[in-house]
Each structure stands twice: as C-alpha cells, then as structure tokens.
Design a protein around this nucleic acid. Structure first.
Length: 151
DNA sequence: GCCAACGTTGGC
DNA sequence: GCCAACGTTGGC
C-alpha cells in the first residue's frame, strides 16, 4: 500500500466537491513524471491526502482512496477543454488520471506553515525547493501524522 | 500580480 | 542533442 499527497485548486475542485460527488476522476494532470507514477506506482486501495493549493487557505484538507489508478483522461480529447491535447488519440492516449473517492474531511485544515515548521515532515517532496509535482508519494508515518493533526 | 524555478517545445 | 524561448506552477 502506497501513500500520496495530491494538490488541487479548490476553486476548480475542492474537498467539499469530492465529499458531495463521492468519486471523481482526477483529470488535468499534464506532467509526465506524475503520469508515470499513476501508471507505474499507484494501486487501487492506496490512500492520498488532498492538498488545497493556490488559494487563501493552503494546506491538507482530507483523505481520499484510489479506486482506479490510471484511466485515460477524457479532457485530452476535448477540443473545448483547457486540458485538450491535439497530439493525443483515443488509440494512444498521452494523459491519465486516477479515479479517487472521498474518505474524510479534516476537522481543521493543516496549513503549509505548520507542515514547514514540523521536523517530522522535513523530507516531504512538498517542501523541496523547486518541486513541481502536483502528486507525489509520502510515507505512511507522514500520512498518519498529518491525519492526526487534522482530526 | 509577481516572480523564481522548473518543464516543454522546436529550430538548427 | 543542444539550447533559447516560452509556458506553468504555486507561494507570497
């Protein structure tokens, strides 16, 4: 079982949206490293933390579970979508995303500033300078510690 | 809105 | 395969 942190902009899709719909395809990822992690490393049943980025309250807001790790992202075929990729074909899709489901919403958001200040999280990719991954693995220890802070 | 730090693209 | 130009990410 693997543990992940997944960043998303709440103005596009938030933990409240996920709680409402229950399940959602995590679309719009256009980074090859992340795509490869979806295809090679993510497994059904993996747990992931939902992180709100590019917003007023930045931090970890809840838990999710991977239902299906890598499905072709339909947005890449939609010329109206901002995630459209003219080089993708149905036969040979370029972009994938996992289907994820809601597990829990934290009682209180765990802010980025708190994560930065806590030595237990100093090895997280989240805090590495120049990190550009919107999805990355974390350890079980980090996962559990963040869940505990949120409850 | 700024901007640093990256990733991607495409001509050569 | 190099590398300059451009685009994107994401905290502040």
């Amino acid at each position: 079982m693997n543990y992940w942190l997944m960043k998303g902009e709440p103005s596009e899709f938030s933990i409240d949206d996920l709680e409402r719909v229950g399940e959602q395809l995590w679309d719009g990822v256009r980074n090859y490293q992340v795509r490869n992690m979806f295809r090679n490393d993510m497994r059904a049943g993996d747990l992931a933390l939902f992180y709100h980025s590019s917003c007023a309250d930045i931090g970890v807001v809840g838990e999710m579970e991977v239902v299906v790790p890598a499905l072709p992202d339909p947005a890449q075929f939609n010329s109206k979508s901002k995630y459209y990729d003219p080089k993708s074909t149905i036969e040979n899709p370029r972009w994938y995303g996992p289907k994820i489901k809601f597990v829990s919403k934290f009682k209180k958001l765990v802010p980025l500033s708190t994560i930065r200040a806590d030595k237990r999280f100093s090895d997280m990719i989240l805090l590495k300078a120049g990190n550009r991954l919107s999805v990355f693995p974390i350890t079980k220890t980090e996962y559990n510690a963040l869940v505990k802070l949120g409850k």
